[in-house]
Design a protein around this nucleic acid. Structure first.
Lengths: 345, 345
DNA sequence: CTGTTAGCGCTTTCAT
DNA sequence: ATGAAAGCGCTAACAG
């Protein structure tokens, strides 16, 4: 139960003041080589580890970021988080992981906590537009932050996102070219910007293709639960005129669609064509099967963190910055394209 | 640039002392309903968020855990992390995510940081046995911790793990029953306990099956890189007497094996049978194909965190606790078992 | 180059 | 039930 050794213990041991030890620890040049060596020896001898809470309290800021996502286990966000962690680490920051499970209340709590922890900044893929009021917690307390993946209606701030409208449009156009006219969409809450945008892309593509949108073909699911997507799919399949193709709003939804198809003994793509947003790395490496709009998930994290670091360093003005990352359209078997080669991807 | 509001601001506003505000915030019963209401009103009015650094400094302990893993993007560890986060959150703790990328130095740095942050405890899937000396950083500073998934030779402390020996044995016996005699193994560094144990299980199964172990059939790969596993597999496939079946040590290695097989135009399981440790949730839901020993990854995280919480609460003695979690043997197509049904899993 | 003083914002301890 | 004083371990701002 030995008391943790403090800067004063080191100072005493080395025969200097606490300030000098602090300077050595912080690599200030204003210390003679002689004392530096003595202090470093004492630090090693005593096993001194500077207390970051004390430092943070003194400096009014910790070298930590909060990263807030709806679900770490969603492969897209997993990679976002890893990207954040990697860049943060290189810059000497730590990462506090906050998994909201798509829950607004929980997100609010986490936002408060990030303020309480005096983090230097926050990276957040918000639950949805309704996150907006609670994000004021950050602005009010001068905590800089960057939105990842999802924008918030009527809110401006740094943002890293993809082009969901164009991406969805391209996926749907692909299906139309293959001859589909009854194209279903499994989406999630319109409170989520990417869902709105992808629905918009879906609409635009249908319109361009001269196909009237049938509202019955659009079924809403959940952000974090594939089972909800499976049920939504079953609803579509039970229609009088069921879809011949489905567009899944993301990598969670697509799991549900596949399961629903299996339950109905439908072969993909023969009985039901399938496209979706987001790739799943392990899945596509093991079975390159899904036709997807693959987004560079990890890059979302690294770029967003870079934006945050830039802001902290003051190297950047007040203006908001929006980074739009390009996605890869990868045609594989699930859409039933004749050109699809078995091993592509 | 408004100064962050402090406990004193609230105190002044409410016409009480800082101590009273503190009591209200910490839900001490020793406050009259009347003052409590006044203070709560002031808190809401001013938007006061208690500073956790100050609190932590004062209490010499933060309500945070460090979770250290070799790679968050490994689906097994992703779920471990989510499990930890969920339980920690429910208990009022936050999680600092540390991704070592299997690097010992980096792990050491993180361990120091966790001490520096005064975390209440650490959950760690160590890089390997060589992590042992640096774990002393935690013990020396009285930071309780729980090992996850990987034990450390000659080290005792709380531990949550699976039965890798038995699991591997069962997988190999399965292959032997199917008639295989040349069974290759893609493993990782013997510094990692699970790799050692699974190799041991492999050995035992061969022995029981009356098959002599051919060292050429055991190829070492990396913890975090599927490509290394692919190369290791290609080495095995290039042997004069190549294996007819392969046992991949984990879900990272199996990706490499599948890719290598594809490159050699080998069909699984017809040309090459395949079994592995760990399931990958999305993969198995989309394409239930791999015969695996599925471990309850998320439970590793939740149980480990529970052990840690127990220790913090003092509800538990000094003795180390070892929890061994059962794995599910799931037979699917990749092993070529005749009984395998297409939709199982 | 080194030391002193005065906090950072909270809680502990002891009064009242 | 409430408050005053002291201190958690560090660093900013001055001295010298």
């Amino acid at each position: 139960m030995a008391m943790r050794v403090t800067i004063h213990d080191v100072a005493t041991h080395a025969g200097v003041s606490a300030m000098t030890v602090s300077r050595v620890v912080n690599e200030s040049p204003r210390v003679s080589d002689e004392t530096r060596r003595r202090v470093e020896a004492s630090i090693a001898k005593l096993g001194y580890v500077p207390n970051r809470l004390a430092r943070g309290l003194s400096q009014r800021r910790t070298h930590a970021f909060g990263v807030i996502v709806p679900d770490v286990a969603n492969p897209f966000f997993t990679l976002v988080v890893r990207g954040v962690e990697q860049v943060a680490w290189r810059a000497g920051y730590h990462v506090i992981l906050c998994d909201t499970q798509g829950n607004l209340e929980r997100e609010r709590g986490y936002l408060e906590d990030m303020v309480a922890f005096q983090v230097a900044g926050v990276l957040i893929a918000p639950v949805g537009d309704r996150s907006r009021p609670q994000l004021r917690l950050l602005t009010r307390n001068n905590v800089p932050f960057v939105l990842i993946d999802r924008s918030i209606a009527g809110f401006d701030g740094d943002l890293v996102q993809g082009d969901s409208v164009a991406g969805a449009r391209q996926l749907i156009e692909h299906l139309i070219e293959l001859g589909h006219r009854r194209i279903g969409m499994i989406t999630e809450s319109p409170d989520v910007s990417t869902a709105r945008d992808r629905l918009q892309g879906y609409r635009e593509a249908l319109e361009r293709g001269g196909i009237e949108l049938d509202p019955e073909l659009v079924a809403e699911s959940s952000t974090i639960d594939p089972d909800a997507a499976a049920e939504a799919t079953l609803r579509l399949l039970a229609l009088d005129e069921p879809p011949t193709a489905i567009f899944a709003v993301n990598n969670i939804a697509v799991v549900g669609v596949v399961e629903a198809a299996r339950r109905r003994n439908l072969e993909i793509p023969d009985d039901l064509a399938l496209v979706c947003f987001d790739d799943i790395e392990h899945v596509s490496r093991l079975y390159p099967f899904l036709t997807v709009m693959a987004q560079p998930a990890e890059t979302y994290g690294t770029i967003a963190t870079q934006l945050l670091l830039d802001r902290l360093s003051g190297r950047v003005g007040q203006r908001r910055r929006i980074v739009v990352l390009p996605a890869d359209f990868i045609v594989r078997k699930s859409s039933g394209a004749p050109a699809a080669t078995p091993a592509s991807g």
